[in-house]
Structure formats: C-alpha cells, structure tokens
C-alpha cells in the first residue's frame, strides 16, 4: 500500500503545491512553519478538502483527481484523523466518542464498546471513559482523540500535532505505541508536528512544507 499526493492543496484563499509519498507501515512527519499548509494536507487526504489540481492516489486507487473528476468520499477512504483542535463530540462521553466510527461502520454496540475500551486502555485513557470532554484536561482529550482514530484500525492515520498537550511520560509511551500500531496494521501514518524529537524518534520520512 502506498500513498501519493502530488498537487495543489487549498483552503479558502490559501493554495500550495505539495508532494507527499508514503508506504505502508511507515510514519511520515510533515513539518513546516505556521500557515504553511500542514493541516490542509491532512484535510485533503481525509477528504475534507478537495485538491485544486494534481492527484491523490492511495494503493492504486484514485481518491482525488480533479482532472478526471475522480473523488472518493471521506467515509469510503478509511482514514482516522486526530485533529489539531481535537474536536471530540461534546455531548458524548469518552467511550461513546471512541465508539462513533465503529457504530457508523455498522459494528454492533457491544462489540464496539469492547473494542473502544480496549483502545482506551492502550492509550491509558480507560480511567475516564465515562467522562464528557468538558471535564477532561487537554492531554486527556488528546488521548481520547487518539483512541478514536486508532480504534478504526485505519488504512491511513492522519495526526495533526497529536501529542502537543500530553505529559512527558505519556508522550514517550505514545512514541512507542504509534509505530507499533502502524507496523501491526500495515497502515500509513502522516503526522504533523513541530517537535523535532518526535521526528527523529518515529518518522521514517520527513516532508517539509
């Protein structure tokens, strides 16, 4: 499996040409200054923004090729996204947030609950499974957001500054956990980060914007 993005990403008035390639089992770091389009790349791959031109091809399937009018909708792409601003659903508790993608995909409630609790345990967030986002700290929310993306066993894992609010110990744990999950599932992970130690610790490739 491979991901190849060559084209112009845009959001509003912002436009930028980018070239991103990644193979399965790989963690690719996307680095760059503020406003350089890192989050827009994540949104484009997730299908939340369309390419202005060029192509996004994943595993030989064209996800977004404007010239040929080819487009795969977000829910069919099988991505898992951790957003920079987390975006947990405020009226659902942590475990319900994690169950969302599974339930949308037709997984039965009990199975979804079991898998969600397992994933919350993996990111050390099971203790606050029944709490709503408003009562969680920034780091705790990020753990839940990570669990919400990982539980789907996504083909493409998109992480927009996923560890910015977690404490040092958890940060170290996540740096071990993430490459392991990516290896085991054969997924592709693209991670936006400003932290150079993250890049050197887990990224096998770096894309600079």
């Amino acid at each position: 499996m491979s991901l190849e993005l060559h084209g112009t990403v845009h959001r509003g008035d912002f436009q930028r040409h980018v070239d991103v390639t990644a193979d399965n089992g790989e963690v690719v770091a996307i680095v760059g200054a503020n406003g350089s389009g890192k989050s827009t790349v994540i949104h484009t791959i997730a299908g939340l923004a369309a390419l202005a031109d060029g192509s996004l091809i994943v595993n030989d399937t064209p996800w977004d090729v404007p010239a040929n009018n080819q487009w795969v909708s977000p829910e069919q792409r099988g991505c898992g996204v951790v957003f920079q601003d987390v975006r947990l659903f405020p009226h659902l508790n942590a475990v319900q947030n994690v169950m969302f993608g599974l339930r949308s995909g037709g997984v039965k409630r009990n199975d979804a609950l079991e898998r969600a609790m397992e994933t919350l345990s993996e990111v050390d967030a099971h203790a606050f499974a029944l709490r709503t986002p408003a009562s969680l700290s920034g780091g705790e929310r990020q753990r839940v957001a990570l669990a919400r993306a990982l539980v789907m066993k996504p083909r493409v894992l998109l992480l927009d500054e996923p560890f910015s609010a977690v404490d040092e110990r958890s940060h170290a744990d996540f740096l071990q956990l993430l490459p392991r999950i990516v290896r085991e599932t054969g997924a592709i992970a693209l991670m936006v980060t400003h932290d150079h130690s993250d890049v050197s610790a887990i990224a096998s490739r770096v894309v600079g914007l």
Binding site: E75, F89, F100, S104
Partner: peptide
C-alpha cells in the same frame, strides 16, 4: 469542524447528522 470530525472518522452523512447536527 464537528461535522468534519465525523467524516474524518469514517462517519456517513447520516452519521454526522445523527451525532453532530441533531444533538
């Protein structure tokens, strides 16, 4: 952004309506 989050997690349009818009 919540609707986008739902789509970004594999949610269908109905899933986004049910989870974000209706509540």
């Amino acid at each position: 952004d919540q609707i986008d989050a739902a789509y970004g997690l594999g949610g269908t349009r109905w899933g986004a309506m049910r989870t974000v818009v209706l509540p």
